[in-house]
Amino acid sequence: MAIAAPCLPWLSAATVICLAYGLYLSLIASPADYQQGETVRIMYVHVPSAWMALFVYTAMAVASLVAVIWRHPLAEIAAQASAPIGAAFTFCALVTGSLWGKPMWGTWWVWDARLTSVLILFFIYIAHMALTSAFDDPARGRRAAAILCLVGFVNVPIIKFSVEWWNTLHQPASVIKMGGPSIHADMLWPLLVMALAFKLLYLCILIVRMKNELTAARIRSLTAARARG
């Protein structure tokens, strides 16, 4: 935290610049798709949100593993602080996917493997948040949530490979795959800039949320000391 906190102003500035440049590329500078027309622009918020949904969960699982094995208190706080951010990104991926699905697939929603597994991911995030705050002793809540997070990690490879294992309306991966991306550079650039912007935004919010949690812990210990007299 001693290193992270001074970086915050720089990270915030980088986020704003990346976001502004990413939005310019996605909405103005990039071409419409020859098949999907202008709806392809939904991709520039949908795909980075979905990547972040998986990235944040993976980061939480690593933090939970560190918390369970080495009992590092900051790791637990990092996992706790990440959960609402991951839930927000997952929600964005689900809603924008639905808004993209209607004009392109003709339906808002289908119960296929990719969509259902991402919906489950959203529920796991919510369960993680609920479990963390379900105990009077926050340390116990965080420990229970760490176990949930590690068990729930099984869902991450299921989401990633769902488009290959099962028949689905959702298209397979076109950026992170063997043989390089199969997407044109004019569309890949805005996608990568937006993905970077979302990642930086995650770091900014994570640092502030972790600082908040440390303040809350200090408040709890002061209140407990007062109660003891």
Partner: peptide
């Protein structure tokens, strides 16, 4: 009706 709500929600 599909593109702008996506950006708005995010």
């Amino acid at each position: 009706n599909f593109v702008w709500p996506s950006y708005f929600v995010v």
